[in-house]
Amino acid sequence: MSATDVLSCEFENPVMPYLRQERLPHIWCPGCGIGTTVNCFTRALADSGMDLDKVAIVSGIGCTGRVAGYMNLDSFHTTHGRAIPFATGLKLANPELKVVVYSGDGDLSAIGGNHLIHAARRNMDLMVVCVNNFTYGMTGGQVAPTTPLGATQTTMPYGNFETPFNLPFLADACGAVYVARWTVYHVKQLAKAMLEGLKKKGFVFIEAMAPCPTLYSRRNRLGDGVDQLKYYKEKSKIVNGANTKDVGLSLFQGDIVVGKFVDRERPTWLDAMNEHFTQHFGEKFTPYGVSHAQD
């Protein structure tokens, strides 16, 4: 069967109903892992059984920032680093919505790092998917807060000497109720984590490691997207419940700990507000957004 035959056959890709098909083809490079994460996300949406009119997606800026624009949901492509506070306003103004933040490592942990830690601290009811490709892809491969030591980037031309973030540890320390990391090799597990994230109330942080063949792999002579998947396969170790302190990725092409690290309960910001005001004001206070409660 030729490629043309495959494209013209009647088979409908189960992912398609979740995408704005009129916006395809997407902008991502061959071998890029972002599309794989989107595939996992559509499966999570399908399995969740949620009313998709009540799911909104918010992205910042960058390659992953374009995800919102391809999803057939209420979708918001905001400013660089500010997807989380936009999502906070959206969620608090209509608690009936399930709000997903989908953005990249640079967007969420560099320019948006302050919002990430405070939303986790408040336990804002948001699911954050952070696609970590260790670089700024859209702008041409600059060093990111996640770039491993020794990796070469355009603004670290002699190799990176800055210690990167351990994102699961950061999210955990700030109070996220669900923290997981998977790679785009682990499609089943990633889709399952996203499904759990959609069902979980509170601040959910899912790190999805994904190759950037054009700007990270090639510059570091790591081959193409498939070579990176091989690396993920060979060097990943699943340790559910791992201490997030121990899951850093600072070593170039080093071992990768994946798994569900944190799954706990804590009142969300809105629940805490409603409980507090009910205690303080008594019957005069009508709990905010409760008639629309999730679940």
Partner: peptide
């Protein structure tokens, strides 16, 4: 709280000035 609405003090003015825009899109 008794009028029926929402105030949130955010971590900075960047957050405040975009949280209101999320809220506007929620109506």
């Amino acid at each position: 709280p008794l009028v029926g609405g929402m105030f949130i003090q955010l971590e900075d003015e960047l957050a405040s000035s975009i949280a209101i825009q999320g809220a506007a899109w929620a109506g």
